[in-house]
Amino acid sequence: MISIGIDVSKRKSTVAIINVMGEILQTPFDIEHSKHGLEKLWDLIKDYPKDQVKFIMEATGIYHLGLLNELQKQGYFVHVANPLLIKKYFDAEIRKGKTDRKDALKLSRYGTEKWWLLQEHSTTDQVYLDLQFLSREYNSFLTAKIKLKVQLSNLIERTFPGLEKILKGHYWALLLDFYELYPCASLVREMSEKKFSTKFIKLAAKKGHRKGAQIAQSIYQLAHECVTFEPNNQVAALSVKHCVTLLRSTEEATIDIITQMNELAKELPEYEVVKKMKGVGDKLAPRLIAEIGDVRRFKDSKSLIAYAGIDAPPYQSGQFEGTNRHISKRGSKSLRKCGYEVMMALKSSKPKEDNAVYEYMLKKEAEGKNKKLVKIAGLNKFLRMYYARVMEVYQN
Protein backbone atom coordinates (compact mmCIF):
# COMPACT_ATOMS: atom_id res chain seq x y z
CA MET A 1 0.00 0.00 0.00
CA ILE A 2 1.39 3.39 -0.97
CA SER A 3 0.50 6.94 -0.01
CA ILE A 4 1.12 9.66 -2.59
CA GLY A 5 1.27 13.21 -1.26
CA ILE A 6 0.75 16.01 -3.78
CA ASP A 7 1.59 19.62 -2.93
CA VAL A 8 -0.45 21.47 -5.55
CA SER A 9 0.71 24.75 -7.10
CA LYS A 10 -0.38 26.76 -10.09
CA ARG A 11 0.18 24.66 -13.24
CA LYS A 12 2.58 22.26 -11.45
CA SER A 13 2.69 20.01 -8.39
CA THR A 14 5.31 18.31 -6.22
CA VAL A 15 4.76 14.60 -5.62
CA ALA A 16 6.19 12.26 -2.97
CA ILE A 17 5.53 8.51 -2.64
CA ILE A 18 5.98 6.40 0.53
CA ASN A 19 4.57 3.08 1.70
CA VAL A 20 2.56 2.45 4.85
CA MET A 21 5.78 1.45 6.65
CA GLY A 22 7.11 4.98 6.15
CA GLU A 23 9.71 3.97 3.54
CA ILE A 24 10.29 6.61 0.87
CA LEU A 25 9.70 4.93 -2.49
CA GLN A 26 10.12 8.07 -4.57
CA THR A 27 11.82 11.27 -3.44
CA PRO A 28 9.78 14.42 -4.16
CA PHE A 29 9.65 15.43 -7.82
CA ASP A 30 7.72 17.98 -9.86
CA ILE A 31 5.10 17.27 -12.51
CA GLU A 32 3.46 19.73 -14.87
CA HIS A 33 -0.34 19.85 -15.03
CA SER A 34 -0.30 18.40 -18.53
CA LYS A 35 -0.69 15.05 -20.23
CA HIS A 36 3.08 14.62 -20.29
CA GLY A 37 3.36 15.36 -16.57
CA LEU A 38 0.59 12.91 -15.69
CA GLU A 39 2.09 10.17 -17.88
CA LYS A 40 5.27 10.51 -15.81
CA LEU A 41 3.21 9.84 -12.67
CA TRP A 42 1.27 6.93 -14.21
CA ASP A 43 4.55 5.21 -15.18
CA LEU A 44 5.80 5.30 -11.58
CA ILE A 45 2.67 3.70 -10.07
CA LYS A 46 1.46 1.45 -12.89
CA ASP A 47 2.66 -1.71 -11.09
CA TYR A 48 0.57 -1.01 -7.97
CA PRO A 49 -3.10 -2.11 -7.83
CA LYS A 50 -5.36 0.91 -7.75
CA ASP A 51 -7.04 -0.21 -4.53
CA GLN A 52 -3.62 -0.09 -2.84
CA VAL A 53 -2.93 3.53 -3.83
CA LYS A 54 -4.21 6.65 -2.09
CA PHE A 55 -3.57 10.23 -3.17
CA ILE A 56 -3.59 13.03 -0.59
CA MET A 57 -3.77 16.69 -1.52
CA GLU A 58 -4.93 19.94 0.06
CA ALA A 59 -7.89 21.94 -1.15
CA THR A 60 -6.25 24.91 -2.87
CA GLY A 61 -9.10 26.99 -4.23
CA ILE A 62 -9.20 26.10 -7.93
CA TYR A 63 -5.65 24.86 -8.62
CA HIS A 64 -6.25 21.29 -7.41
CA LEU A 65 -9.50 20.73 -9.31
CA GLY A 66 -8.01 19.76 -12.68
CA LEU A 67 -5.58 17.27 -11.14
CA LEU A 68 -8.32 15.88 -8.88
CA ASN A 69 -10.55 15.33 -11.89
CA GLU A 70 -7.83 13.46 -13.83
CA LEU A 71 -6.98 11.21 -10.86
CA GLN A 72 -10.61 10.28 -10.32
CA LYS A 73 -11.06 9.59 -14.03
CA GLN A 74 -8.27 7.01 -13.72
CA GLY A 75 -10.15 5.37 -10.83
CA TYR A 76 -7.78 6.31 -8.00
CA PHE A 77 -8.72 7.04 -4.39
CA VAL A 78 -8.20 10.75 -3.69
CA HIS A 79 -8.46 12.42 -0.29
CA VAL A 80 -8.77 16.22 -0.38
CA ALA A 81 -7.68 17.46 3.05
CA ASN A 82 -8.77 20.63 4.79
CA PRO A 83 -5.75 23.01 4.71
CA LEU A 84 -6.35 24.05 8.33
CA LEU A 85 -6.31 20.40 9.46
CA ILE A 86 -3.03 19.79 7.62
CA LYS A 87 -1.51 22.95 9.10
CA LYS A 88 -2.38 21.79 12.61
CA TYR A 89 -0.89 18.40 11.81
CA PHE A 90 2.36 19.98 10.60
CA ASP A 91 2.52 22.24 13.67
CA ALA A 92 3.26 19.18 15.82
CA GLU A 93 6.86 19.28 14.57
CA ILE A 94 9.44 21.12 16.66
CA ARG A 95 11.74 22.03 13.80
CA LYS A 96 9.69 23.79 11.17
CA GLY A 97 10.40 24.54 7.57
CA LYS A 98 8.37 24.96 4.42
CA THR A 99 9.22 23.90 0.91
CA ASP A 100 7.12 22.17 -1.73
CA ARG A 101 9.24 19.02 -1.32
CA LYS A 102 8.78 18.91 2.45
CA ASP A 103 5.06 19.58 2.15
CA ALA A 104 4.65 16.70 -0.34
CA LEU A 105 6.45 14.32 2.02
CA LYS A 106 4.38 15.49 4.99
CA LEU A 107 1.17 14.88 3.05
CA SER A 108 2.40 11.38 2.19
CA ARG A 109 3.15 10.65 5.85
CA TYR A 110 -0.24 12.02 6.83
CA GLY A 111 -1.75 9.52 4.39
CA THR A 112 0.08 6.56 5.94
CA GLU A 113 -0.79 7.53 9.51
CA LYS A 114 -4.46 8.14 8.70
CA TRP A 115 -4.71 5.38 6.06
CA TRP A 116 -7.83 3.71 7.47
CA LEU A 117 -9.50 7.01 8.39
CA LEU A 118 -9.15 8.80 5.06
CA GLN A 119 -12.39 9.57 3.27
CA GLU A 120 -12.50 9.51 -0.51
CA HIS A 121 -13.47 12.76 -2.20
CA SER A 122 -16.91 12.17 -3.64
CA THR A 123 -17.49 12.78 -7.33
CA THR A 124 -20.23 15.39 -7.11
CA ASP A 125 -23.04 15.31 -9.61
CA GLN A 126 -22.29 17.54 -12.61
CA VAL A 127 -25.37 19.71 -11.97
CA TYR A 128 -24.07 20.67 -8.53
CA LEU A 129 -20.63 21.39 -9.97
CA ASP A 130 -22.10 23.61 -12.67
CA LEU A 131 -24.28 25.42 -10.15
CA GLN A 132 -21.36 26.07 -7.84
CA PHE A 133 -19.24 27.34 -10.72
CA LEU A 134 -21.99 29.75 -11.81
CA SER A 135 -22.60 30.83 -8.21
CA ARG A 136 -18.97 31.88 -7.80
CA GLU A 137 -19.13 33.74 -11.10
CA TYR A 138 -22.30 35.47 -9.93
CA ASN A 139 -20.59 36.57 -6.71
CA SER A 140 -17.66 37.98 -8.71
CA PHE A 141 -19.95 40.00 -10.98
CA LEU A 142 -21.97 41.13 -7.97
CA THR A 143 -18.82 42.44 -6.28
CA ALA A 144 -17.89 44.33 -9.46
CA LYS A 145 -21.44 45.70 -9.70
CA ILE A 146 -21.32 47.07 -6.15
CA LYS A 147 -18.00 48.80 -6.82
CA LEU A 148 -19.37 50.33 -10.02
CA LYS A 149 -22.46 51.59 -8.18
CA VAL A 150 -20.22 53.29 -5.63
CA GLN A 151 -18.19 54.81 -8.47
CA LEU A 152 -21.36 56.04 -10.18
CA SER A 153 -22.62 57.51 -6.91
CA ASN A 154 -19.35 59.40 -6.48
CA LEU A 155 -19.59 60.77 -10.02
CA ILE A 156 -23.17 61.94 -9.44
CA GLU A 157 -22.16 63.60 -6.18
CA ARG A 158 -19.57 65.65 -8.04
CA THR A 159 -21.49 66.57 -11.19
CA PHE A 160 -25.20 66.30 -10.32
CA PRO A 161 -25.66 65.96 -6.52
CA GLY A 162 -29.13 64.94 -5.40
CA LEU A 163 -30.05 63.16 -8.64
CA GLU A 164 -30.05 59.74 -6.95
CA LYS A 165 -32.67 60.86 -4.43
CA ILE A 166 -35.07 61.74 -7.23
CA LEU A 167 -34.37 58.74 -9.46
CA LYS A 168 -34.17 55.96 -6.88
CA GLY A 169 -35.69 52.52 -6.45
CA HIS A 170 -37.51 51.34 -9.58
CA TYR A 171 -36.22 54.40 -11.48
CA TRP A 172 -32.72 52.87 -11.58
CA ALA A 173 -32.74 52.09 -15.32
CA LEU A 174 -34.06 55.60 -16.03
CA LEU A 175 -31.27 57.05 -13.90
CA LEU A 176 -28.63 55.31 -16.02
CA ASP A 177 -30.18 56.48 -19.30
CA PHE A 178 -30.66 60.05 -18.08
CA TYR A 179 -27.23 60.43 -16.49
CA GLU A 180 -25.55 59.07 -19.60
CA LEU A 181 -27.26 61.84 -21.64
CA TYR A 182 -26.81 64.59 -19.03
CA PRO A 183 -23.64 63.82 -17.02
CA CYS A 184 -23.45 67.41 -15.70
CA ALA A 185 -26.10 69.66 -14.16
CA SER A 186 -24.88 72.50 -16.40
CA LEU A 187 -26.19 70.64 -19.46
CA VAL A 188 -29.72 70.82 -18.01
CA ARG A 189 -29.32 74.48 -16.99
CA GLU A 190 -28.50 75.39 -20.58
CA MET A 191 -31.97 74.25 -21.71
CA SER A 192 -35.37 75.82 -21.20
CA GLU A 193 -37.66 74.02 -18.78
CA LYS A 194 -40.19 73.25 -21.51
CA LYS A 195 -37.61 71.75 -23.84
CA PHE A 196 -36.06 69.70 -21.05
CA SER A 197 -39.44 68.44 -19.83
CA THR A 198 -40.45 67.33 -23.33
CA LYS A 199 -37.24 65.33 -23.79
CA PHE A 200 -37.37 63.81 -20.30
CA ILE A 201 -41.02 62.75 -20.61
CA LYS A 202 -40.17 60.85 -23.81
CA LEU A 203 -37.19 59.21 -22.10
CA ALA A 204 -39.31 58.21 -19.09
CA ALA A 205 -42.11 56.88 -21.30
CA LYS A 206 -39.66 54.48 -23.00
CA LYS A 207 -38.98 52.97 -19.57
CA GLY A 208 -42.69 52.76 -18.78
CA HIS A 209 -42.86 55.60 -16.24
CA ARG A 210 -45.94 57.85 -16.27
CA LYS A 211 -44.78 60.54 -13.85
CA GLY A 212 -42.27 61.99 -16.30
CA ALA A 213 -43.56 65.57 -16.03
CA GLN A 214 -43.34 65.67 -12.20
CA ILE A 215 -39.87 64.12 -12.16
CA ALA A 216 -38.66 66.48 -14.92
CA GLN A 217 -39.73 69.47 -12.87
CA SER A 218 -37.87 68.18 -9.81
CA ILE A 219 -34.69 67.49 -11.80
CA TYR A 220 -34.79 70.88 -13.55
CA GLN A 221 -35.15 72.63 -10.21
CA LEU A 222 -32.32 70.55 -8.73
CA ALA A 223 -30.02 71.42 -11.65
CA HIS A 224 -30.42 75.14 -10.88
CA GLU A 225 -30.01 74.76 -7.11
CA CYS A 226 -27.26 72.16 -6.66
CA VAL A 227 -23.63 73.09 -6.08
CA THR A 228 -21.34 71.03 -8.29
CA PHE A 229 -17.69 70.39 -8.94
CA GLU A 230 -17.82 69.74 -12.63
CA PRO A 231 -14.91 68.77 -14.86
CA ASN A 232 -14.93 69.53 -18.55
CA ASN A 233 -18.18 68.23 -20.08
CA GLN A 234 -16.32 65.88 -22.41
CA VAL A 235 -14.27 64.45 -19.53
CA ALA A 236 -17.40 63.91 -17.41
CA ALA A 237 -19.28 62.36 -20.34
CA LEU A 238 -16.43 59.89 -20.99
CA SER A 239 -16.26 58.76 -17.34
CA VAL A 240 -20.02 58.42 -17.01
CA LYS A 241 -20.40 56.58 -20.32
CA HIS A 242 -17.91 53.87 -19.41
CA CYS A 243 -19.22 53.51 -15.86
CA VAL A 244 -22.80 53.14 -17.08
CA THR A 245 -21.77 50.72 -19.85
CA LEU A 246 -19.95 48.49 -17.37
CA LEU A 247 -22.88 48.63 -14.96
CA ARG A 248 -25.32 47.55 -17.65
CA SER A 249 -22.95 44.77 -18.67
CA THR A 250 -22.58 43.39 -15.13
CA GLU A 251 -26.34 43.59 -14.56
CA GLU A 252 -26.96 41.68 -17.78
CA ALA A 253 -24.35 39.09 -16.75
CA THR A 254 -25.90 38.52 -13.31
CA ILE A 255 -29.38 38.16 -14.83
CA ASP A 256 -28.12 35.65 -17.42
CA ILE A 257 -26.25 33.65 -14.76
CA ILE A 258 -29.25 33.46 -12.42
CA THR A 259 -31.48 32.44 -15.32
CA GLN A 260 -29.08 29.64 -16.26
CA MET A 261 -28.78 28.57 -12.60
CA ASN A 262 -32.55 28.28 -12.30
CA GLU A 263 -32.69 26.13 -15.44
CA LEU A 264 -30.04 23.80 -14.00
CA ALA A 265 -31.55 23.73 -10.51
CA LYS A 266 -34.96 22.70 -11.90
CA GLU A 267 -33.39 19.33 -12.73
CA LEU A 268 -32.85 18.64 -9.01
CA PRO A 269 -35.60 17.14 -6.82
CA GLU A 270 -35.07 19.67 -4.00
CA TYR A 271 -35.58 22.76 -6.18
CA GLU A 272 -39.33 23.20 -5.62
CA VAL A 273 -39.01 22.46 -1.90
CA VAL A 274 -36.25 25.06 -1.45
CA LYS A 275 -38.16 27.68 -3.45
CA LYS A 276 -41.17 27.30 -1.16
CA MET A 277 -39.11 28.12 1.92
CA LYS A 278 -39.79 31.66 3.17
CA GLY A 279 -37.03 34.14 2.35
CA VAL A 280 -35.91 32.14 -0.68
CA GLY A 281 -36.87 33.43 -4.13
CA ASP A 282 -35.86 32.91 -7.75
CA LYS A 283 -32.42 34.44 -7.17
CA LEU A 284 -31.54 32.90 -3.82
CA ALA A 285 -32.90 29.37 -4.39
CA PRO A 286 -30.35 28.25 -7.03
CA ARG A 287 -27.52 30.04 -5.19
CA LEU A 288 -28.40 28.30 -1.93
CA ILE A 289 -28.55 24.89 -3.61
CA ALA A 290 -25.26 25.63 -5.38
CA GLU A 291 -23.41 26.51 -2.16
CA ILE A 292 -24.79 23.58 -0.14
CA GLY A 293 -24.52 21.03 -2.93
CA ASP A 294 -25.84 17.50 -2.47
CA VAL A 295 -27.19 17.56 1.09
CA ARG A 296 -26.84 13.77 1.33
CA ARG A 297 -23.08 14.15 1.80
CA PHE A 298 -23.71 15.56 5.29
CA LYS A 299 -24.39 12.96 7.99
CA ASP A 300 -26.75 15.30 9.87
CA SER A 301 -27.88 18.93 10.11
CA LYS A 302 -25.03 19.73 12.53
CA SER A 303 -22.53 18.84 9.80
CA LEU A 304 -24.25 21.24 7.41
CA ILE A 305 -24.16 24.01 10.03
CA ALA A 306 -20.46 23.33 10.63
CA TYR A 307 -19.87 23.44 6.86
CA ALA A 308 -21.43 26.92 6.84
CA GLY A 309 -19.07 27.95 9.65
CA ILE A 310 -21.84 29.17 11.96
CA ASP A 311 -21.35 26.52 14.66
CA ALA A 312 -20.04 27.55 18.08
CA PRO A 313 -17.67 24.78 19.27
CA PRO A 314 -17.74 24.08 23.02
CA TYR A 315 -14.94 25.40 25.21
CA GLN A 316 -14.43 23.70 28.58
CA SER A 317 -11.42 23.19 30.82
CA GLY A 318 -11.51 21.91 34.41
CA GLN A 319 -14.24 23.76 36.30
CA PHE A 320 -14.57 26.41 33.59
CA GLU A 321 -17.11 26.13 30.81
CA GLY A 322 -17.35 28.94 28.25
CA THR A 323 -20.82 30.27 27.54
CA ASN A 324 -20.06 33.39 25.48
CA ARG A 325 -18.83 31.60 22.34
CA HIS A 326 -18.47 32.92 18.81
CA ILE A 327 -19.21 31.17 15.52
CA SER A 328 -16.22 29.32 14.09
CA LYS A 329 -16.27 30.87 10.58
CA ARG A 330 -14.32 27.76 9.50
CA GLY A 331 -16.58 26.88 6.65
CA SER A 332 -17.97 28.14 3.38
CA LYS A 333 -17.90 31.93 3.29
CA SER A 334 -20.12 31.90 0.20
CA LEU A 335 -22.77 29.83 1.97
CA ARG A 336 -22.73 32.14 4.99
CA LYS A 337 -23.17 35.15 2.72
CA CYS A 338 -26.03 33.55 0.80
CA GLY A 339 -27.71 32.37 3.99
CA TYR A 340 -27.41 35.82 5.53
CA GLU A 341 -29.17 37.28 2.47
CA VAL A 342 -31.99 34.77 2.98
CA MET A 343 -32.37 35.93 6.58
CA MET A 344 -32.44 39.58 5.49
CA ALA A 345 -35.11 38.80 2.90
CA LEU A 346 -37.15 36.88 5.46
CA LYS A 347 -36.86 39.70 8.01
CA SER A 348 -37.90 42.39 5.52
CA SER A 349 -40.82 40.38 4.09
CA LYS A 350 -42.39 39.86 7.57
CA PRO A 351 -44.45 36.77 6.70
CA LYS A 352 -48.00 36.95 8.05
CA GLU A 353 -48.49 33.21 8.33
CA ASP A 354 -46.64 31.16 10.97
CA ASN A 355 -42.97 30.76 10.16
CA ALA A 356 -40.67 29.01 12.61
CA VAL A 357 -37.49 30.82 11.54
CA TYR A 358 -39.06 34.29 11.55
CA GLU A 359 -40.68 33.70 14.94
CA TYR A 360 -37.37 32.43 16.31
CA MET A 361 -35.63 35.63 15.18
CA LEU A 362 -38.35 37.73 16.81
CA LYS A 363 -37.85 35.75 20.02
CA LYS A 364 -34.11 36.45 19.96
CA GLU A 365 -34.76 40.14 19.33
CA ALA A 366 -37.08 40.22 22.35
CA GLU A 367 -34.23 38.76 24.41
CA GLY A 368 -32.13 41.79 23.49
CA LYS A 369 -29.79 40.11 20.99
CA ASN A 370 -28.17 42.34 18.36
CA LYS A 371 -29.41 42.22 14.75
CA LYS A 372 -26.46 40.29 13.35
CA LEU A 373 -26.60 37.64 16.05
CA VAL A 374 -30.36 37.29 15.48
CA LYS A 375 -29.83 36.58 11.77
CA ILE A 376 -27.06 34.04 12.48
CA ALA A 377 -29.32 32.27 14.98
CA GLY A 378 -32.12 32.30 12.40
CA LEU A 379 -29.78 30.89 9.74
CA ASN A 380 -28.81 28.08 12.11
CA LYS A 381 -32.47 27.08 12.46
CA PHE A 382 -33.10 27.60 8.74
CA LEU A 383 -30.29 25.18 7.78
CA ARG A 384 -31.67 22.55 10.16
CA MET A 385 -35.04 22.84 8.45
CA TYR A 386 -33.39 22.84 5.01
CA TYR A 387 -31.57 19.60 5.81
CA ALA A 388 -34.71 17.90 7.12
CA ARG A 389 -36.93 18.93 4.19
CA VAL A 390 -34.44 18.11 1.43
CA MET A 391 -33.52 14.74 2.99
CA GLU A 392 -37.21 13.92 3.14
CA VAL A 393 -37.43 14.55 -0.62
CA TYR A 394 -34.58 12.11 -1.32
CA GLN A 395 -35.91 9.47 1.07
CA ASN A 396 -39.39 9.44 -0.50
Rank of each mutant, 00 (worst) to 15 (best):
G169T: 09
L142F: 06
R136Y: 04
K149I: 12
F160T: 03
A173S: 15
L175I: 09
S135F: 08
R136Q: 13
L176G: 13
M191K: 15
R136F: 02
T159F: 12
S153M: 05
Y182G: 01
I146P: 01
Q151N: 11
I146A: 12
R189A: 01
K145T: 09
S186H: 08
M191H: 06
L174V: 14
S153E: 10
F141P: 04
F178D: 12
Y138M: 04
Y179N: 02
L134N: 03
D177G: 00
K194N: 11
I166P: 06
F141R: 03
T159I: 05
L167N: 14
K145F: 07
L131W: 06
E157F: 03
L176T: 12
E180W: 06
A144T: 06
F133R: 15
P183S: 13
F141L: 04
S135P: 04
V188N: 03
H170L: 07
E190D: 06
Y179T: 00
L167V: 12
E193H: 09
L175G: 12
P183V: 07
L167P: 14
L163N: 00
I146W: 02
H170S: 14
R136G: 07
L131I: 05
Y179G: 02
I146N: 10
L181T: 12
F160N: 06
F160Q: 03
I166M: 08
S153Q: 13
T159G: 09
V188T: 08
L152G: 02
F133N: 15
H170M: 09
K149N: 12
W172D: 10
F133S: 15
P161H: 03
K145Q: 10
E180Q: 15
I166L: 09
F133K: 15
